[in-house]
């Protein structure tokens, strides 16, 4: 009697696991077969996190600048993916995300110019690029 119960339980478990596996494979096939805007959002979040890690870990100030550019590019990718989404949904202003991307690029250019000129002045005075040795404004 106990053996029968154990066997039935076993078969039940096997069936359930097969169902779960079928569901997963279906989802996997769905994931593999088509590109959705969510993929671009995940890519942009990965790039954003890599940029944040770069800002936190590196001491070289030029690489910190480049990580900031990376973060801004991740945001641009996000904006364009959502712009694509709204184009598909038939929104009244489908290009707003792309317009905003242009503004982001302009502000990034201005930021890079001013930041690099500050860096030049700093290197001329302090002869270093490590951010933890630049402590003029430290209280």
């Amino acid at each position: 009697m106990e053996q029968v119960q154990v066997l039935s339980l076993f078969f039940q478990l096997q069936q359930q696991s097969q169902e779960i596996a079928a569901g997963y494979s279906e989802r996997f096939f769905e994931m593999v077969s088509q590109v959705s805007a969510t993929n671009f959002l995940v890519l942009s979040s990965i790039l954003f996190v890599i940029g944040v890690i770069g800002v936190l870990t590196r001491r070289n100030i030029i690489i910190i600048f480049m990580s900031i550019e990376l973060i801004l590019n991740a945001v641009n990718l996000n904006l364009i993916a959502f712009s694509r989404y709204w184009q598909q949904q038939g929104a009244p202003n489908p290009y707003t995300g792309q317009l905003f991307t242009i503004f982001v690029i302009v502000v990034a250019a201005a930021e890079a110019v001013v930041g690099l000129s500050i860096l030049l002045a700093l290197y001329r005075n302090r002869e270093t690029l490590a951010v933890d040795e630049i402590d003029i404004m430290k209280w």
Binding site: S36, T38, S45, Q87, Y95
Partner: peptide, 19 residues
């Protein structure tokens, strides 16, 4: 971020106007 994105399902991208 991924926890926020996980339940956010956007359809396949095709056939829309071009920027």
């Amino acid at each position: 971020i991924y926890f926020g994105l996980k339940n956010f399902k956007i359809d396949e991208i095709k056939g829309a106007p071009v920027g």
